[in-house]
Simulated scan of single mutants.
Amino acid sequence: MPLIILSGYPCSGKTQRAQQIHTHFTTKITTSTDPRIKRLKVHTINTSTLNLLRTVYREARTEKEARATEYSAVKRLLTKDDVVIADGLNYIKGFRYQLFCEAKALLTPSCVVHVAAPPEKCREWNSARKAAAEAEKEGGNEGEGEGEGNGDGMPYEDDILENLIFRYEEPNGMSRWDSPLFTVPYIDETPDLDGIWDAMVGNAVKKPASESDYLYELDKTTQDVVTLIQEHQRSIGAGGGSVPVADCAVALELPSSSITVPQLQRIRRQFIALNRQHGVGKERIKELFVEYVNAQFR
């Protein structure tokens, strides 16, 4: 059965998304009345289950061995009755192609889930992990739980993190080995996972809007929000305050100092880059963009 390949920067929240997918699929399976679906089992493969250290990414040889370990685990578990979630960095397109070929050889579908977070957010989360690890050591708990450097909640050394971010090869939905591609923005706490289920297990694949329509809506909606911010700042002579947004459940929470036009356009470009691969339903673009803008100034 299906192979779900997660991909993203280190510390982008891939393991959280893998857990959400695992839970969603397990619930679908246990509540189904279809015997074909009820016999399915869900497996998640990650650095913790494979007992891999973060330091494997420091050298080409150990990194290659780590990828071979992940590939072997996928190959071993992937059968007609097993759903495999490959929760690794999977940042090299050649390796994603290798996993795609393995699924294809078994006549089972595969997809890529791109967990999209900007590098600065990944650095922030990695720093938080490092601080938590230091606090745990000071508390005398270094011998408990997962080994040092192991497990999906452990931090990366700064040089390894930067190297992996630099070398990351973003999935492209136009490539057959990255298709279908589902993009999950880091600010979307409860993403709609039914599309992944339908594409991998269900009989009906949800048909997305055409690329031109989607990109038009993404461009127009984000520009409308940017224009609203600019008009608000002109009307009050400064930034700051809560600004309601039409047809949106979330209000803009602007900082006290005015946001410049270059800042707004940079934020808008980042959001579009994160979501250009049909990662969001058109009806959710506005709400997610407002949340994204708010997150930049917290």
Rank of each mutant, 00 (worst) to 15 (best):
I5D: 04
S7W: 02
S7Q: 00
G8F: 06
G8D: 04
C11M: 05
H24C: 06
I29F: 09
S32Q: 04
I37K: 08
R39H: 14
L50E: 12
L53H: 15
T55V: 11
V56W: 05
Y57F: 13
E59R: 14
A60S: 12
E63L: 11
K64S: 07
E65F: 02
E65Y: 05
Y71E: 12
S72R: 15
D87S: 10
G88A: 12
N90M: 00
N90Y: 05
K93G: 14
Y97F: 05
F100N: 08
T108S: 07
T108Y: 01
A117K: 02
A117E: 00
P118Q: 14
P119N: 05
E120H: 14
K121E: 15
R123W: 02
E124F: 09
W125H: 02
R129L: 10
R129H: 07
A135W: 04
K137T: 10
E144K: 14
G147T: 08
G151Q: 13
G151W: 02
D152I: 08
L161T: 13
L161C: 12
N163L: 06
R167D: 14
G173H: 12
W177A: 14
F182I: 08
F182K: 11
T183Y: 03
T183Q: 03
Y186L: 05
G195I: 11
I196V: 11
A199I: 00
K206S: 13
K207R: 10
D213G: 08
Y214L: 01
Y214C: 03
Y214H: 03
Y214I: 01
L215P: 00
T221Q: 04
T221K: 10
Q230D: 01
Q230K: 09
G241T: 04
S242M: 10
P244A: 09
P244Q: 08
V245K: 13
D247M: 10
A249P: 08
A251I: 00
L252H: 10
R266E: 15
I267A: 15
R269T: 08
G279I: 03
A295W: 06
